[in-house]
């Protein structure tokens, strides 16, 4: 089933700057897809269209058959869960519990069901024991995991992660990868961390200059030197995707 369908999406900012020039992207249920691209390619602009924070100047975004338009916003925002890059932007409530409850509460969930959702989401990211702690007492990696839980609590159909591995130490980065692999949810992951994309996402797409320039198996894209060079994508020193065993296909 098609969870996400973006067709001919164009966006012009109010100051006249055009960020997207007809982007096509589709993600099927159960897929994990990496969205790659250099800085300024329009990745964030694209992400903000997926749940209707920005509305398209042209083209369309459809989530599980529902077009992203003003009347559908509430349901679209339940279906598309965005985890922002800086967990301090996402976690604004006094305690972890309140924060994870924020989304479901906006959807009208109350009482015992709300508690159950909160604990379930925190359990999925291994943070149940921190439920009554203030977010600013947690480590950065823990805050990122709680940020993921705040979105999981809304039972999204697709999880959109903006730079999930940024600022994480290697252990936290690996823990987060384990968590993401264990989730039974469709994932679109925006990242500059190409080894992370290879590890987690069998398929990748490349956005550059406001258009989709590539879509294919992650390993094939990362070993396409011409494509990589043309779009300012670079692998870390000494990293060769050909020598990496990849868990699931790719």
């Amino acid at each position: 089933m098609r969870v996400l369908d973006v067709a001919g999406l164009a966006h012009v900012y109010p100051d006249g700057h055009q960020a997207l020039y007809g982007v096509d992207l589709h993600v099927d249920s159960g897929e994990r897809v990496a969205l790659l691209g250099p800085n300024g390619a329009g990745k964030t602009t694209l992400v903000l269209h997926l749940n209707g924070i920005l509305l398209p100047a042209a083209g369309s975004v459809t989530v599980s058959g529902m077009p992203v338009t003003k009347p559908n916003l509430q349901e679209v925002r339940r279906r598309v869960g965005i985890v922002f890059q800086d967990p301090d932007d996402q976690l604004f409530m006094p305690t972890v519990r309140d924060d994870v409850a924020f989304g479901p509460r906006n959807l009208g969930v109350r009482g015992a069901e709300l508690d159950r959702r909160v604990l379930e989401a925190l359990d999925q990211v291994g943070m149940v024991e921190y439920v009554d702690r203030p977010p600013h007492h947690l480590s950065f990696g823990q805050r990122r995991r709680v940020a993921v839980a705040t979105v999981l609590a809304m039972r999204p159909e697709i999880l959109v992660l903006d730079e999930p591995s940024s600022n994480l130490d290697p252990a936290s980065r690996r823990e987060l990868a384990d968590i993401l692999r264990s989730l039974d949810v469709t994932v679109l992951m925006v990242t500059h961390d190409l080894p992370y994309a290879l590890e987690l996402c069998p398929r990748s797409v490349v956005l550059s200059g406001g258009v989709m320039v590539a879509d294919g198996p992650t390993r094939a894209l990362l070993t396409d030197e011409e494509l990589m060079r043309a779009h300012r994508l670079e692998l870390p020193f000494g990293f060769d995707p050909r020598n990496v065993p990849v868990p699931e296909g790719g």
Partner: peptide, 21 residues
């Protein structure tokens, strides 16, 4: 700017302005 980003994150989780958090 952080305030704006927090607001975006709130909207993304279904916050409807005017409602109580």
């Amino acid at each position: 700017e952080r305030g704006e980003r927090v607001h975006l994150a709130m909207l993304s989780r279904g916050h409807a302005p005017g409602e109580r958090a």
